[in-house]
């Protein structure tokens, strides 16, 4: 199978504020390509632009400049309705919070992406059953989200994100509100989905441990991609590598901030 690009981002910028105002570059000339079957993590400090990047990829936000193509489709030229359909058919989401609709049961939540596409009932039941089984939440099917644990909720969210076999699975701090045990559980699930079913995953995280499950990490700072890290060896080694990079950036950032502060004080 020839490897195709899932995401092609070309010189994408996202600028907040008008021409006369103070312009803020949430994204500044970002370009990267993600191949099918990759598991990419995006890391950066708060306010570095990683969520904006994810929103642009997930078609929820429009870039000010540049083009974004997902699975060969240029999403920057699509209309709102087409974008909605595109999201429904080609993308899967796992968010940190408010993942599930609390007025639907686990089963109904997972079935939602399929039933929204008006698939025949037997097909829906088939697929939902399989996915619930796969993620080990089949016995929770008739429960409401409010009555299950956080980890179970995130697994339900994962089930919903992959039930329609999307081209790309997007995660926004998926382990952010989970304890270690549940976080590991979810990450293992995602790894399995990636390795066994060749599902491409793009995940935003600030947690080095979560990031160590990825095959590649993009570091973003002040709206720019500043570094790339490929996983070559074991996950543990990769984890250390990530921590080092973060440490460097942390130190550099702290230094820069201190300099700026002292400059202000000098002036004062």
């Amino acid at each position: 199978m020839a490897i195709k690009p899932v995401i092609e981002m070309n010189k994408v910028s996202k600028i907040y504020g008008g021409k006369t105002e103070n312009q803020v570059f949430a994204l500044n000339d970002v370009s990267f390509t993600m191949q099918e079957g990759e598991f990419i993590g995006i890391m950066g400090a708060s306010g570095s632009g990683k969520t904006t990047l994810l929103n642009v990829v997930s078609t929820l936000d429009h870039p000010t400049e540049g083009t974004v193509a997902i699975a060969g489709t240029d999403i920057t030229r699509m209309k709102a309705r087409e974008l909605s359909d595109f999201r429904a058919q080609r993308l899967g989401f796992i968010f940190q919070e408010f993942n599930l609709l609390d007025n639907l049961t686990v089963y109904e939540n997972v079935a939602l992406p399929l039933s929204l596409q008006d698939l025949p009932v037997h097909q829906i039941m088939d697929r939902v059953g399989k996915v619930l089984e796969q993620l080990g939440i089949a016995e929770l099917a008739d429960k409401y989200p409010a009555t299950i644990s956080g980890g179970q909720r995130q697994r339900t969210a994962a089930a919903r994100a992959i039930v329609h076999e999307p081209a790309l699975l997007l995660g926004d701090e998926p382990t952010g509100s989970l304890d270690t045990k549940n976080a590991v559980g979810l990450l293992e699930q995602m790894k399995r989905l990636n390795e066994q079913q060749q599902i491409s995953i793009l995940m935003v995280t600030h947690d080095a441990f979560s990031a160590s499950y990825c095959s590649r990490i993009l570091f973003i700072q002040d709206g720019r991609l500043v570094q790339e890290l490929y996983r070559l060896g074991s996950r543990e080694a990769f984890y250390k590598q990530i921590l080092n990079v973060l440490g460097d950036y942390g130190a550099a950032a702290a230094e820069a901030a201190a300099k700026e502060l002292s400059a202000v004080e000098d002036r004062g």
Partner: peptide, 16 residues
């Protein structure tokens, strides 16, 4: 609001 927001993210058209 959150519920509709979520459905929007999941790709449900506004008209729907």
């Amino acid at each position: 609001i959150q519920r509709y927001e979520m459905l929007h993210k999941l790709g449900v058209r506004r008209e729907r």
